[in-house]
Amino acid sequence: MITGPAPAHLDGVSDYAGRLADALDGAGVEVDAVPLRPPAPGRWLAATVGAVEEVRRMRPDLVHVQFAPSAYRFSALPGLLPRLLPSGTPLVTTIHEYGWWAAPGWLPGRAWRPLERLRLWDRETALLVPASHAVVVTNPDHGAEVRRRTGRRPVLIPIAPNVPIAPNVDRADSPPARAETRRRLGLGGDGFLLVFFGFVHPVKGVRYLLEALPALRAVRPGLRLVVAGGFTSQALPEGEARAFRRELEALAARHGIGDAVTFTGYLPGPEVSALLAAADGAVLPFTAGVSVKSGALLAALAHGVPTAVTVPDDPDPRLRDGENVAAIEARRDAAAIATTLRRLIGDPALRTRLSAGGRTLAAGHTWPAVARAHLDLYERVLAHA
């Protein structure tokens, strides 16, 4: 399984690949990870050639590439893998990001279309989509775009939660554990614990959430927000991450809510699970909107946390306002966030309904099911390779 160079705690795709490998191991598939690590900054061709040499030594039954432009620092060179692999190597590619990037970016869309329709080249993945024996997408939108550009029918395999429920932290079964987590955060009896979980990046909308907090604290003075997640990631290098954290901390101080916000930084999975199990609500105010392709959303829903989400331009039909999520109708809008969260905070019956509906939705997204779907795909590819 070929992945980008970043470790799991810095990159969502690497985290996904590690969880998939573990699940496949449970299904009887032996997985060897081959990260593309440039020997020096920017040397992606050398990294690609090195990965191919390692694959040649391993002589695997099948090669599976996990692809996102950000995972390879927006280099098109890893997309040459199909040309470099031994002839006839069964190849599967999973696309985690698609429909918004091209290399080179200056080439107009009409110039790409004949190359993509003839399956000679793909503007985002180079040779990966055209030359793979099977292409996997994690959501229908990416699948529709692949079909529109290339005529190929990719295989849809949705993701599963990126944080499993840790032992002894289930919301219903462990009130002492919940109480201990809340005590450590300094929540009193009237406290409302609101959690944002995931990599903290400008596109996640946290700055608008902070701007909404004063209005929410006026309604519920004991409300506390925990922003749980690392700032440094493959998409936000360390220097930019430090600057962004300072910006958010300054914004919280400016709005007089510094004492109501906790930035945890990166947390191990069991600690995130304990936090979600103790939460009264979660909020994911992404600037592009939220769909079921979000592992953070699935983690919150699997933990039974009533969750508020922004709505994308093309809403995910599986997310239903008042049934399994609370919809924030406008993006990049503090007032819209405050409106939805006031509804969530003030309506215990709504929270109970969302908790149950969210668990039901998340129950259809499990790692054993993801592994079975991949195993079925691998067997089909190998049968026709």
Rank of each mutant, 00 (worst) to 15 (best):
L193N: 05
E30I: 10
L210S: 14
G198N: 05
P270Y: 03
R246E: 12
L193F: 09
P140K: 05
L251M: 09
T232Q: 04
Y16E: 13
D259W: 13
S291A: 10
F67E: 04
T264Y: 00
G205V: 10
Y266W: 09
A383K: 06
T310W: 11
D313I: 08
T307H: 14
P270W: 02
I159G: 15
L81E: 05
L185P: 06
A278E: 03
R217D: 10
P167G: 07
R224K: 14
A6D: 15
W44P: 00
I257W: 10
S132V: 00
V65L: 03
A373D: 06
K293A: 14
A218E: 13
P35M: 09
D316F: 09
D61W: 00
P167I: 10
V381D: 01
V325E: 12
G151C: 02
D316T: 11
K204A: 13
P104G: 13
L77I: 14
G109V: 04
L194H: 05
S294H: 12
D141L: 12
G358R: 13
W367C: 11
L267V: 02
P221A: 06
V49Y: 02
G42A: 06
V63C: 04
I328G: 11
Q234T: 14
W100A: 12
R37S: 04
V34Q: 01
S233T: 14
L194S: 07
P108H: 09
L267Y: 01
L77F: 06
E97A: 09
T150C: 08
R246Q: 11
S14N: 15
R83A: 15
R152F: 02
A334Q: 03
R148A: 09
G364F: 13
V49P: 00
E97Q: 10
R342M: 05
A250D: 13
H9L: 13
A6V: 15
H374G: 06
E329T: 07
V305R: 13
R147N: 04
V227C: 07
H201Y: 10
L193M: 08
V311Y: 11
L107E: 01
L251S: 08
P82Q: 12
L115V: 09
A282D: 03
P130K: 00
N162C: 11
D61S: 04
G42S: 03
P161G: 13
G265T: 03
V55C: 02
T310D: 15
E329V: 03
A111N: 07
R148Q: 06
A102R: 08
P86K: 02
V200F: 05
A253D: 10
G229N: 02
G99R: 08
L344H: 06
A40Q: 04
Y378F: 04
A23K: 01
H384F: 01
A47Y: 00
W101F: 09
G269I: 00
H133D: 14
R19M: 13
P86R: 03
R153I: 07
D190Y: 09
R318L: 14
A131M: 08
P35W: 02
P130N: 01
A68T: 12
E247A: 15
L187K: 07
P86Y: 05
V381Q: 00
E145F: 06
R57S: 02
L107C: 07
S273N: 04
G239K: 11
D347A: 10
A253P: 03
L194E: 05
A253V: 05
A349T: 15
W112M: 07
D316R: 08
D314T: 12
G357L: 14
A51F: 05
D333F: 00
A335R: 08
T366P: 00
G229H: 02
H96S: 03
R207M: 13
